[in-house]
């Protein structure tokens, strides 16, 4: 029997040391040297060095003066993040979407982009498709008394278009640039 128990226990301990301790430590060591920004959460700081968020984690923006993020099922909670998990046939989904659409719709701008009416998988989606930003341009421009064309240019500068994924705009980055105008 000990011919089974000894290897079982000792290999479990060894594998714990190799894959559970050495491996994460090696990755951490290399990552902290090679990519310190990303390894520590892609933190965004203001001029005084205070942490104002992470470029990968959505923030809630309210009021007329800001570009709003996607709605969050977990009210932008980060611990823990969560999703609505509403099934496509759930009447609660349609009710929420219709309610929000009535509030957000801008006369003359057509239907509200779906990204502004649906909650994301993480509740912390930091991005919006460009057209969902474009839908908010007139409102933000009016509130900040800026020409729409200036904001449009700012939006265009912030569009990221990877080869293997849809174009997106980082809402926090856009709003921070907005503050600097």
């Amino acid at each position: 029997m000990s011919s089974t128990i000894r290897p079982a226990l000792s290999l479990l301990v060894l594998m714990t040391l190799i894959t559970g301790v050495a491996y994460p430590l090696v990755v951490t060591g290399v990552a902290q040297v090679a990519f310190p920004d990303q390894a520590n959460g892609s933190l965004v700081r203001d001029a005084e060095g205070k942490v104002r968020g992470s470029s990968l984690i959505a923030q809630e923006f309210t009021g007329e003066r800001w570009f709003h993020s996607r709605p969050s099922a977990g009210a932008f909670a980060t611990v823990s993040s969560s999703a609505s998990n509403l099934g496509p046939s759930n009447p609660a989904l349609a009710a929420r979407v219709f309610d929000d659409a009535a509030k957000i719709q801008v006369p003359g701008q057509g239907p509200v982009p779906l990204a502004l009416l649906t909650t994301s998988g993480s509740g912390l989606d930091p991005h919006l498709p460009p057209q969902a930003i474009a839908y908010q341009l007139a409102r933000v421009a009016a509130a900040r008394q800026l020409p729409v064309s200036t904001l449009e240019r700012l939006m265009d500068e912030h569009i990221e278009q990877p080869l293997v994924g849809p174009p997106v705009v980082n809402v926090l980055a856009l709003n921070m640039a907005l503050e600097k105008l």
Binding site: A115, T118, S120
Partner: peptide, 9 residues
């Protein structure tokens, strides 16, 4: 539909 999906994917 976009409910439960992330914009970047």
């Amino acid at each position: 539909p976009l409910e439960g999906k992330e914009a970047r994917f």
